[in-house]
Write a protein that binds this DNA or RNA. Structure first.
Lengths: 187, 187
DNA sequence: CCAGATATTCAACATCTGTAGAATGAATTC
DNA sequence: GAATTCATTCTACAGATGTTGAATATCTGG
């Protein structure tokens, strides 16, 4: 009954909830929102489908939880510094497979909620960004850079274009550096 | 009974078949493979669902037909000429909405057939391309360029990133020219 | 105008889906 | 150790989906 003392039951429940969420993330990333069924998630978590509903309400909410991603620090600095920060983030996304992000990316073309989140993310990325970039086309540049970066992550992890999927992340970054810099610098 | 003389019945049937195919294309592009139902296609074409099956066999085959795209000429020339051809094609994809291509793009993250077609397309794009590009990383460069271009078309037509969706195609092309050139030229 | 061909619709199926509520079983508290 | 709380499972429903085969309506050729 104590809120500080955690009983075995609590621990087990939390463990189960987390297992469900982890499997949901994994499956959403693998197959996207529509093709991932509550029943499949339940089976993967070795649990009854009803329990999934009980803990997460419904499929949309479960997806929202599974798609949660640690909010990134806002970009800052000169145009060149911003470019470098973008490339750093991209490198991270190329090295590991950011499961939650992949769930969103995989679903963005068919699930409106996922598309919204991608758009928000791109917009957020541009909040300070577009002010730093000289010229009157800052906002367009932000969108273009976002689209480019999305394309690359997509091509590597989801589409798995042969050479892009196998390549050394640093090699890819080096290839993209001039491209990103040309987009963050006004002509 | 003559094969050269086209009867009214023939004309009507062909008209119906084409109407079905056109609506299928439109809906697949709008909602993707999974979310587009045979019933919805039939309704849009003002026809019975059974007729759709009768003419196109099953959903996969219908998608395959709807996703058919006029095969593009193979790229050729120097690295810079290839870059220019790529930018030209991109401009076309930005100006009009290539419905069949959008159907494939919209579905590529959840429908294996669509993903295959995108990969093949990227691969084909690279057949001559990677030989012209100097350096030993030609194939990787092809994949990266493909990913970038996919990202931009996606961002404009499907994701509809605000400023990217509204911008003048030529403006976008000019922003991307240095990026594409830096990728087609060896450093 | 009639018989046959054929374009199109009707009716039905088996399956899968998200979801709800009752039932069960195990841990906790007193 | 009995009563109670609560994590979990069982059972079921209602709607949607791809697909099928029989039935119908329309056109064609003689």
């Amino acid at each position: 009954m104590n809120s500080v003392n955690e009983t075995t039951r609590d621990r087990r429940r939390i463990e189960t909830q987390e297992r469900i969420l982890a499997e949901a993330r994994r499956l959403f990333a693998e197959a996207g929102y529509d093709r991932t069924t509550i029943r499949a998630i339940a089976a993967a978590a070795q649990v009854d489908p009803g329990l999934v509903m009980h803990y997460y309400g419904n499929k949309q909410q479960l997806f929202a939880r599974a798609a949660e991603t640690k909010s990134q620090a806002v970009l800052d600095g000169t145009a060149d510094e911003i470019a470098e920060q973008l490339l750093d983030r991209l490198r991270q996304s190329l090295i590991e497979e950011p499961v939650a992000s992949l769930a969103v990316l995989r679903s963005m073309l068919t699930h409106p909620d996922a598309a919204d989140e991608v758009r928000e993310n791109a917009q957020l990325r541009g909040s300070t960004f577009s002010k730093v970039i000289p010229g009157d086309d800052g906002e367009l540049r932000v969108d273009v850079v976002s689209a480019v970066l999305i394309g690359v992550v997509l091509g590597r992890h989801l589409l798995k274009l042969d050479h892009l999927a196998d390549a050394d992340p640093d090699k890819i970054i080096e290839l993209l550096r001039p491209a990103v810099e040309s987009l963050t610098r006004a002509e």
